[in-house]
């Protein structure tokens, strides 16, 4: 079950990017292989609208079933939940620290009520 984490740089040591759609990188963790893959999301950084939707397309294309990020917007929320992807938000620190926090049960799962884009 792959896990996607928003990142500022293409590395597990990178800081988590608190934004979903406009994070420059998506780090994909494969627990079976214990391996990381970096997905370029720079297109989302400069999109006027729909940044969250195109990032959700990337997460779905990678067949990740869980997303860890800082905050999630309403369109991204709808995209990801329709795709059956579970969203955990409020992640801080490095990408690998965020993964550990998720495994420790320290991150909250997003609901429709708090999918506000971090406001």
């Amino acid at each position: 079950m792959k896990i996607a984490i928003t990142a500022q740089n293409p590395s597990p040591e990178s800081a988590v990017d608190p934004r979903f759609g406009r994070a420059p990188w998506l780090m994909i963790y494969d627990p079976n292989e214990e391996s990381w893959q970096a997905i370029d999301n720079s297109k989302g950084l400069n999109a006027a609208h729909g940044a969250g939707i195109q990032a959700a397309q990337k997460v779905a294309d990678q067949q990740a079933e869980t997303l860890i990020t800082g905050a999630i917007g309403p369109k991204a929320y709808r995209s990801l939940t329709t795709a059956g992807i579970r969203i955990y938000h409020g992640a801080k620190g490095s990408v690998s620290e965020a993964l550990q926090a998720y495994r420790d049960g320290a991150l909250r799962e997003a609901s429709a009520d708090d999918a506000t884009g971090g406001v």
Partner: peptide, 14 residues
């Protein structure tokens, strides 16, 4: 404009 999103089992529109 990302008004359409294609998921494995459905296409959703914005």
């Amino acid at each position: 404009y990302h008004a359409l999103l294609c998921l494995p089992k459905q296409v959703i529109s914005f």
